[in-house]
Simulated scan of single mutants.
Amino acid sequence: MKLRVHFVVDPMGWFCLSMVFGVWLYNTVFIPTLILFPHYSEGHIPCALVACYYLASLFCITALVRASTADPGRLPQDPHIPHSEREHWELCNKCNLMRPKRSHHCSRCGHCVRRMDHHCPWINNCVGEDNHWLFLQLCFYTQVLSLFTLLLDFCQYYYFHPLTHLQQEGFGVRHELALLRVSTFMGLLMFGGMSSLFYTQLTGILTDTTTIEKMSYFKSDVGSSGRPWQQTLSEVFGTRWKLLWFVPFRIRQPLGGALYPRLHV
């Protein structure tokens, strides 16, 4: 499968995505400046802690960029439908094109998406069959980075030894308390919101139910998959190697016998 870049022209989505990127950039700049590097230079914390923070930050921004630019499963204008699979397709009453069942037409993007879960303004993209795994990784690594930031903020207040060598004229030192309070507030907000979203997404995947289907008043042919959670998540992430579920740098390959069969498009 080739890596396809997908952009949604939506000023509001760009604004929301910029806010998420700004939160990530804030913590990636000020937390190392105020906590990690000064305490590492004085021997209060090991080098591994600094490396782990930057690794979590790297995985988080990679998942964000890829989830926002990956093709969620957009249907082509003229899909090829084999005769044996026609019963699995239906006509979209908005774009008047044939689409697989459980697809949905996104009014913001203007096209149908295979097994669309929802349109997320925070990544300025739909969450569908081809990028759902990236969105799940984004929720996970945002929780990890937010919790990491909160722990560092707490340790800076109550645990770390006072620094002996400070540049008192530096902006970070003069405004350390205010900067750490903002970081703590954003960390609490992101961790709480992403934890709830991650639980909702994980529950939906394990029960084979999209967010759109949950919001509908009725659901036809949708219910619990009745299969082991390992198999369900393997089909979403496109691999049975559990370690690769946590790697946002790879290209997803659909598995056979998935929750949502890969039809010819």
Score class of each variant (00 low, 15 high):
N96D: 10
L97Y: 04
S103E: 05
H104T: 04
C106G: 02
S107K: 11
R108K: 14
R108E: 09
G110Y: 10
H111A: 07
H111I: 03
C112W: 04
C112K: 04
C112D: 04
R114P: 00
R115P: 01
H119S: 08
H119E: 03
C120W: 09
C120F: 10
C120Q: 03
I123N: 00
C126W: 07
C126Q: 04
E129C: 02
D130R: 08
W133E: 03
F135W: 01
F135L: 01
L136I: 14
L138I: 02
Y141I: 00
T142I: 09
L145K: 01
L147G: 12
F148K: 03
L152K: 04
D153E: 08
F154C: 11
C155H: 12
C155N: 13
C155I: 02
F160P: 00
H161A: 15
H161M: 06
L163N: 09
H165A: 13
F171M: 14
E176R: 14
E176H: 10
L177E: 14
A178T: 14
L179Q: 04
R181P: 00
S183K: 03
T184C: 11
F185R: 02
G187C: 12
G187D: 13
G193K: 01
S196W: 13
L197N: 02
T200V: 09
G204T: 13
L206V: 08
L206T: 06
T207D: 09
D208P: 01
D208M: 05
E213M: 10
S216R: 14
Y217M: 11
F218P: 00
K219L: 09
K219P: 00
D221G: 02
V222R: 11
G223V: 02
G223M: 10
S224K: 09
G226I: 10
P228H: 07
Q230Y: 15
T232F: 03
T232M: 10
T232R: 15
